[in-house]
């Protein structure tokens, strides 16, 4: 259910219905931001059928990727050869 694509807010339009322009890697569209009242220009939102349903938590994204990248490293490398991001 449900394609959800991350895009970056480039413009906000306040009005009776909060909308904004969201850039998806060079393709832009007007998106309803009514359910993301705190989202600001530069934030990434997850968009489904022209509607932002979530704001991407960049710090959490970073933490998840780092944790996954460290998987199996103990087994692979007998030394503590960690690389910093």
């Amino acid at each position: 259910m449900c394609l959800g694509i991350p895009g970056r807010i480039t413009e906000l339009r306040d009005g009776p219905l909060r909308t904004g322009t969201v850039d998806f890697d060079g393709v832009t569209r007007t998106v309803c931001l009514a359910c993301e009242p705190d989202a600001q220009v530069g934030d990434y939102v997850l968009v489904h059928v022209g509607f932002a349903i979530s704001r991407i938590d960049e710090a959490e994204a970073h933490r998840t990727l780092e944790a996954l990248r460290e998987l199996g490293q103990l087994e692979e490398e007998l030394g503590p050869e960690r690389t910093d991001p």
């Binding site: 009514a34 359910c35 993301e36 009242p37 997850l46 349903i53 960049e58 933490r63 998840t64």
Partner: peptide, 18 residues
């Protein structure tokens, strides 16, 4: 939660109200 960058425990409260 293995999708933390998008999902929080409470979800999108404004959307739930709507």
């Amino acid at each position: 939660n293995a999708y933390g960058r998008v999902v929080s425990e409470v979800g999108n409260v404004e959307a739930q109200v709507l």
